[in-house]
Design a binder for these strands. Structure first.
Length: 519
DNA sequence: TCACCTCCCACATTTGAATAGA
DNA sequence: ATCTATTCAAATGTGGGAGGTG
């Protein structure tokens, strides 16, 4: 159970991402047109219910904290073993049908095709991005659950972990360091009566621009470091032992980041060997710190999405273009035997080494790997899927439309435009053309449960664990709890997978597009 | 030389089992 | 016997920093 135990008082602490036609700018965010987010489609299902998926509202918890980070240029540590996000992604959901089942999941998509570097206290473009990692989804471990369940409490994705290990066996979301990413929340209607995967299946996507971040292996911006130390309970050990330095820092927090004692010690010892830092030293340190950055907010980002026909979707974002695994849901009936299936579910989930594990209810990951994903026809080597296979397009929503592909060396960090939401039905697509040559990934469609580090370490020789990359096949996956099994099986049975979106569609939405190749 | 990454560390919180008390 | 509160240790999550790598 990852949900928070208490609901927040009121909704003050939340940023709202609303469904079609109700998109609002986040309070405090620069004015912008979150344009084109509306989706006038109404699901046939929804006509039977007053609470349609379009009515779902999502509020970002700890909006103010996210904004603090966002304004400084959020960085998220990624490690080989996986690192949690902080602030963690928590939302309050309203407007669901209490009896309908929903699946909540998160993906993290590239924001642009840049690699960044932190130079002169600013994030600058440092070149072209690395090829996208295999797309993975973090499905909330409670999924699927009723609307009443989701609305009862905060929905927390705090156990989501980020890694830079391309062969990550834990199911963590794989990212490239020094790249910019945007998390997205998807809510999929999963009512059994709704025949998920049918043309009636509805879902919506919620994006909070303030949750965008740059992935790093160590913090670059001292202000971010201090915000983490200040706000993350686990980092309390890096706070000053008394309140004085924090208090001093807080007094100046508008202009100067908080300097922890450890940092102060480190800096002052080098400049004043043998001397204890004085208060004036501290103040001088604060005064001389130049960690603050001023980012330009881009207004007028233009969003268009949510068309009934996926082929009409204007894929006007870089993320939409390059997001290798996240734009199509290829849905099939369980008994579609010709489905280009991933390894059988029982092979994935019940390989001998971990059959005996009693899995806590934990998050599961879905690895999506581009063109070769179930039923998605790659342009080069894959035959078109048989007609009964329905490949549905994941709504191509993206907050990154304001990014043009730039090659200049001095592109400032640009926070995303404010959050937006889209809802749509999952349209059917006969085939999906894949763009570029995505290198084969570790699996067609892998279902992971997150394993703790120790769990894997226990099963993998420590030497290999510590010194070598652990191949997924060597790493046991514990069987999911019955509840997770249900979710997994549900998703799996419905071929809930994602794939590359069509470059043509992207091109149709953008005036100028660089060909994106992963090579 | 430099930017970036990996590993290990100390310190803190979180979690869950064991125990005590009502 | 059951429930609740408390205690404690293990697991887990942090950023820092030394050293490695390309």
């Amino acid at each position: 159970m990852l949900q928070e135990k208490s609901l927040p008082e009121g909704e003050d602490g939340f940023t709202t991402a609303q469904t079609a036609g109700h998109v609002e700018a986040a309070a405090g965010s620069p004015a912008m047109g979150v344009a084109g987010l509306s989706n006038s489609l109404s699901s046939p299902q929804s006509q039977d219910s007053e609470q349609t998926i379009e009515n779902i509202k999502v509020y970002l918890h700890e909006k103010e904290l996210w904004k603090k980070f966002h304004e400084a240029g959020t960085e998220m540590i990624i490690t080989k073993a996986g690192r949690r996000m902080f602030p963690s992604y928590k939302v309050k959901v309203t407007g669901m049908n209490p009896k309908t089942k929903y699946i909540l999941l998160i993906d993290i998509v590239p924001a642009d095709d840049h690699r960044y570097k932190f130079c002169d206290n600013k994030w600058m473009v440092a070149g072209k991005a690395e090829p996208a990692m295999p797309g993975r989804l973090y499905v909330h471990p409670d999924s699927p659950a009723t609307g009443a369940h989701w609305m009862r409490q905060l929905v927390s994705f705090q156990k989501l972990k980020l890694t830079n290990n391309h062969l990550d066996p834990f199911g963590h979301i794989i990212l490239n360091s020094m790249h910019k990413y945007q998390p997205r929340l998807h809510i999929v209607k999963a009512d059994e009566n709704n025949a998920f995967g049918s043309k009636n299946t509805a879902f919506c996507t919620h994006v909070f621009s303030e949750t965008a971040f740059i992935s790093v292996t160590s913090y670059q911006n001292h202000k971010i470091t201090q915000l983490k130390i200040e706000n993350n309970p686990f980092a309390k050990g890096f706070r000053g032992s008394d309140d004085s330095d924090l208090r001093v820092a807080r007094l100046q927090s508008k202009e100067y980041p908080v300097i922890s004692k450890s940092i102060m010690r480190q800096r002052l010892v080098s400049s004043h060997p043998g001397q204890l830092p004085s208060k004036s030293d501290l103040n001088a340190l604060h005064s001389s710190h130049q960690g603050l950055q001023h980012y330009q907010y881009e207004n007028g980002a233009h969003m268009q999405f949510g068309a009934a026909d996926a082929q009409d979707l204007p894929l006007n974002s870089f993320a939409a273009q390059r997001d290798s695994g996240l734009f199509y849901h290829c849905l099939k009936r369980r008994d579609d035997h010709y489905f280009r299936s991933p390894p059988p579910y029982d092979q994935q989930m019940l390989s001998p080494p971990y059959r005996n594990e009693v899995a806590p209810r934990d998050a599961c990951m879905y690895s999506t790997s581009g063109a070769e994903i179930a039923g998605v026809s790659g342009v080069d080597d894959l035959p078109p899927p048989p007609p009964p296979l329905s490949c549905n397009m994941w709504t191509s929503v993206s907050p990154y439309t304001s990014y043009s592909v730039q090659t200049m060396e001095t592109v400032p960090y640009q926070p995303f435009p404010t959050h937006f939401t889209t809802t749509t039905m999952m349209p059917r697509l006969p085939t999906i053309a894949s763009q570029g040559s995505q290198p084969p990934s570790e699996s067609h469609f892998s279902v992971y449960n997150q394993l703790s580090q120790s769990q894997v370490r226990d099963r993998v020789p420590s030497s290999s664990f510590q010194r070598e990359r652990v191949h997924p096949s060597l790493c046991e996956r514990k069987p999911p709890s019955p509840h997770i099994n249900t979710a997994n099986e549900f998703l799996y049975s419905q071929s809930f997978s994602l794939s590359r979106e069509s470059s043509l569609q992207y091109h149709s939405g953008m005036g100028t597009v660089e060909n994106w190749t992963d090579g």
